[in-house]
Nucleic acid binder design. Structure first.
Length: 113
DNA sequence: GTTCTCACA
DNA sequence: TGTGAGAA
């Protein structure tokens, strides 16, 4: 329809992605990364898992999964884990800010049909 | 199914 | 850097 609707849809999609959380087993199956590797990376500070209520069983959201994929590819390209983490973090921050601006900016409600 | 730690390559 | 095994 109009731009507002598109922006709303984008926000909903982003929110949905942020709510997509899966267990470490699912992540390992999806990404092909063994669970030990995932915990290892988390220990190294590559990702932050969200413990769901009162215990263990880390849960990873879309952003964490994306981070893992990015880091894995970077490592395979010859980067060290630490360097990969830094680069991925920077990329995530940049993307986050860009999307936040894009979502926050509420320009004119022009009727362009 | 998940978590952790110790140790090894 | 990544994995194995044992234990909870």
């Amino acid at each position: 329809m109009n731009e507002d609707a598109q922006k709303l849809n984008a926000l909903l999609d982003f929110d949905l992605l942020k709510k997509l959380v899966v267990g470490i087993g699912e992540v390992s199956e999806i990404t092909g990364i063994p669970t030990r590797k995932i915990r290892y990376w988390e220990e190294k500070g590559a990702i932050q898992s969200e413990t769901n209520t009162e215990g263990s069983t880390r849960r990873y959201n879309y952003l964490n999964v994306k981070k893992m994929l990015l880091i894995q590819e970077m490592i395979e390209e010859g980067f060290t884990l630490d360097a990969a983490i830094k680069k991925v973090e920077k990329r995530m921050v940049t993307l986050n800010e860009a999307f936040r601006k894009l979502a926050d900016t509420v320009p004119d409600t022009e009727d362009n049909e």
